[in-house]
Amino acid sequence: MAHTGVVYTREANGKELELRVSGKLYKDALVMFDRETGTLWTQVDGKALRGPLLGSRLTEVPALQTTWKAWKKLHPDTLVLRKPGSLRGSTYDGYFRDSSKRGLFGTQGDERLGGKDKIIGVREVGDAVAVPQSVLEKKTVVQFLLAGKPVVLMYALEAETPGVYRAVLEGNALSFRVRKLGGQTQIEDIETGSAWSPLEGKAISGPLAGKHLDRVPYLYSFWYAWSAYRPETRVISE
């Protein structure tokens, strides 16, 4: 409902958990429960809300949210979760398009952005940063420190999706900029002039060709949900 896909390691206290849908909402977003202990977990934050595992937190796993077309180009041998035929669209389509609806119960985000503005959110203990998708689309590259460590967001135009990475390679910080070459936009690092693919976080030409940046887990979410769960978040604007 918060329009956000998150992948978690489903383990707590060394115990494997099977997560299921509780039918409950917290701050207008999905609450999960585990079959083993009945603990309730928030989907947005991976935090135990109540139950025997209270105080635990699920660890995020980096994933990429993109289109089927862009994904299969990156990974021609990909496996695909089987589904019963060609389901099209979302049961929430009307909801996603209606900017006045914020969850079932009208959870308010704070006023810095519109409730249904899409943001890319990253967080660590003690820090959280939201970048509006509109800002990233305009700038292509947005770089900042998250809990003191450099992070870069690169916008992949062809897939309309962000790639989110640690802006560090083998211990050295990298800074990225956008260069227009003819009609093409190219992302390169200032230190070596290597060109980078935003979807893969991989240097595609130049001295660093073939090197990969580490992915950072992110949430692609509506502002209302992000700011309700992370009121202390910083916002990167223009």
């Binding site: 896909g5 992948v7 796993v61 994933a63 990429l64 949210q65 993109t66 289109t67 089927w68 077309k69 994904w71 299969k72 990156l74 990974h75 041998d77 990909t78 496996l79 695909v80 979760l81 589904k83 035929g85 060609s86 389901l87 099209r88 669209g89 979302s90």
Partner: peptide, 25 residues
């Protein structure tokens, strides 16, 4: 049954390199 514009979440197994896609629909 997948449409080109279908949104997916994609993961790559860090050990085997196997890629997996999950349709958001």
């Amino acid at each position: 049954w997948m449409a080109d514009d279908e949104p997916v979440l994609g993961l790559v197994d860090p050990v085997t390199g196997v890629a997996k896609a999950y349709s958001l629909w």
